[in-house]
Design a protein around this nucleic acid. Structure first.
Length: 545
RNA sequence: GCCCUCUUAGCUCAGUAGGAUAGAGCACAGGAUUCCUAAUCCUGGGGCCGCAGGUUCGAAUCCUGCAGGGGGCACCA
């Protein structure tokens, strides 16, 4: 919008460019919006920024929009909007709602996002929750921006970890059946393992008491039973956390349906597979990885990497324009080899976007909570949401950049809860609802036409609130471009931070008719934007608090 | 040892594509409600943006080095 006006003005004075930087000044006193473009052009044009700024200002033709346009500082151009323009935009926001709030930059391009993908060997912990909250929010964000988004969970149902789980359950089962069996090294120790064993014993009795785990059908039964049970628990955890997936991709299936073989053959055809020391290797160094990687071990077994190759090639073959992986930061070393795979398969490596999520440090009153998955001692996602609530948990995860470590102090989060930022935003929403209820009791209409008179909205609080509202699309687009939903979180805190002072200082319902209606309309817009933002974050919007 | 990442107010963290005088919440101190929800509002103190160089009109932001936290360097997943 403003960019277009500037581009046009630049064209008038003979400057061709396709991007103009526009920003909101740090201090309100400087103006509503500002551009440093004159300074940036100074070197190229060999003229002083001041002179350039003046000629740009002279070339701008938008009398309906700007109250003032001034040159300031080292060569900034600062703009101040006319109140009438702000009101026009507010009307647009209200009447066009989703068109206004969701600029379609995706244009239907297909994005696949894979997240959580926890091994089905135990319940989800808090770190998975962070990945889940982020993945869901990124997916919501991109859908809102007009991308066609598919959410996937990759199920590691093949390989060593599920086998270990099966064997751990088998060992517990044998104990129950009074035919002891050595607990596997590195086995899983959690209570849930015990529960699974009890479940099997309850249904099948001593049927397997004389069997060994080396009997194929026995081990297969225990493995499949155990991970299937864990997977359905994970699904339930995620669903209760408000996170749904479009597709659950089984790793095992990639082997059985030939996807792995096909992918490896494709890479072999391109000359990136070779045999050495009786193992099969992928030539990752051809694309800058540190070393080549084994895909079939000396013992004939595939590595995890083999199925991962297949999955990533499959994703791209399915026609996605972008594939996003949300990984724990401990997997960052894995990125170069996946990028290598993508290039070796003849795809554009930039189609892969990896968002790294740092660990969550769980604290209680400032003291770290010790956790060891191996020993079965950990606080699950469910434990945390039960204690502090789902909205707070999701919100906290989205108030930090994903790649910075996060301290999650259960006591602090609960203690601060009356003034918790998530409540601050939800409260603004609930307050508006409450006012709307009162308005209805008084038979004041809550629908607003395009010609509603908003001229009464002239106080600093009102004008600032309107500005904040109509800048939502800007914040949204930044979040979309960077794939960073936390920008929405901060925007919403600022919006609520403009709303509450407005509410405190101004009566909404007891004014003369036009002003009351104008303020109700303003509130309606705040409500719309809060709902839009919280929906993206996956946080609820309670009508009452 | 090599690689990645982080270091901003007492604490937890933002900082928009290098821009103007460095931002929020919490905590702390004081104040506000005869009135639509006080889970609210107002005022205040608080900073060598880890350290040192460099790039330039301009650096918390980009580059190099150093220190500290976290992570990774498997024919594990």
């Amino acid at each position: 919008m403003i960019e277009d006006i500037l581009l046009k003005a630049l064209g008038k004075i003979g400057i061709e460019t396709d991007f103009v930087e526009v920003e909101i000044p740090r201090h309100e006193a400087l103006g509503d919006i500002s551009t440093p473009v004159a300074m940036l052009l100074s070197k190229k044009l060999r003229k002083s920024p001041a002179l350039i700024a003046e000629s740009i200002i002279a070339a701008i033709d938008a009398p309906d929009i700007f109250q003032t346009i001034e040159r300031a500082g080292a060569g900034f151009i600062n703009f101040r909007f006319k109140p009438s323009y702000l009101c026009d935009e507010l009307r647009k926001l209200y009447s066009r709602e989703s068109d206004y709030l969701r600029p379609n930059v995706g244009k239907g391009r297909k994005i696949q996002i894979e997240f959580v993908s926890a091994n089905p060997t135990g319940p989800l912990h808090l770190g998975h929750g962070r990945g889940a909250a982020l993945g869901a929010a990124v997916a919501n964000l991109l859908s809102a921006a007009g991308f066609s988004v598919t959410k996937e969970f990759y199920v590691n149902d093949a390989g060593r970890q599920v086998k270990l789980l099966g064997e751990s359950v088998f060992a517990r089962y044998k104990t129950i059946a009074n035919t002891p069996y050595d607990f596997p090294t590195d086995g899983y120790h959690g209570d849930y393992v015990e529960e699974l064993a009890k479940g099997i014993h309850a249904t099948y009795g001593d049927k397997f008491s004389l069997s060994g785990f080396d009997e194929v059908e026995v081990s297969q039964f225990f493995i499949a039973y155990s991970y299937t049970a864990m997977l359905s628990e994970i699904k339930k955890d995620l669903s209760d956390f408000g996170v749904e997936f479009d597709r659950w991709q089984s790793e095992k299936e990639l082997f059985t349906d030939g996807t792995v073989t096909k992918a490896i053959n494709a890479l072999r055809g391109n000359g990136f597979i070779y045999e050495q020391d009786s193992a099969v290797w992928f030539k990752a160094t051809a694309f800058g990885d540190e070393k080549d990687r084994v895909i079939i071990k000396t013992d004939g077994q595939y590595t995890y990497f083999a199925s991962d190759i297949a999955y990533h090639i499959l994703k791209l073959d399915r026609g996605f324009d972008e594939i996003i992986n949300i990984w724990g930061a401990d997997h960052h070393g894995y990125i170069p080899r996946i990028r290598a795979v993508i290039q070796a398969a003849g795809h554009d490596e930039n189609k892969l976007v990896v968002l790294l999520v740092q660990m969550v440090m769980l604290l209680r009153g400032g003291v770290p909570v010790q956790m060891s998955k191996r020993a079965g001692e950990f606080v699950t996602l469910r434990d945390v949401t039960n204690e502090v609530g789902r909205d707070i948990t999701r919100f906290i995860f989205l108030t930090r950049r994903p790649d910075s470590q996060l301290e999650f102090d259960m006591e602090a989060v609960k203690k601060e809860s009356p003034e918790n930022p998530v409540y601050y935003i939800q409260y603004a929403y609930a307050r508006i609802n409450s006012v709307f209820g009162k308005a209805q009791e008084r038979n004041i209409s809550l629908s607003f036409d395009d010609d509603i008179n908003l001229s009464g909205l002239d106080s600093p609080e009102e004008l600032q609130l309107i500005k904040k509202l109509i800048f939502y699309p800007t914040a949204f687009l930044t979040a979309v471009r960077t794939r960073e939903p936390h920008r929405i979180t901060f925007y919403l805190q600022e919006l609520a931070g403009q709303f509450h002072p407005f509410y405190y200082k101004h009566r909404i319902l007891d004014e003369a008719e036009p002003l009351t209606r104008a303020r109700l309309m303003l509130c309606a817009c705040v409500k719309i934007v809060i709902k839009e933002g919280l929906n993206i974050l996956g946080v609820s919007t309670p009508d009452k608090m």
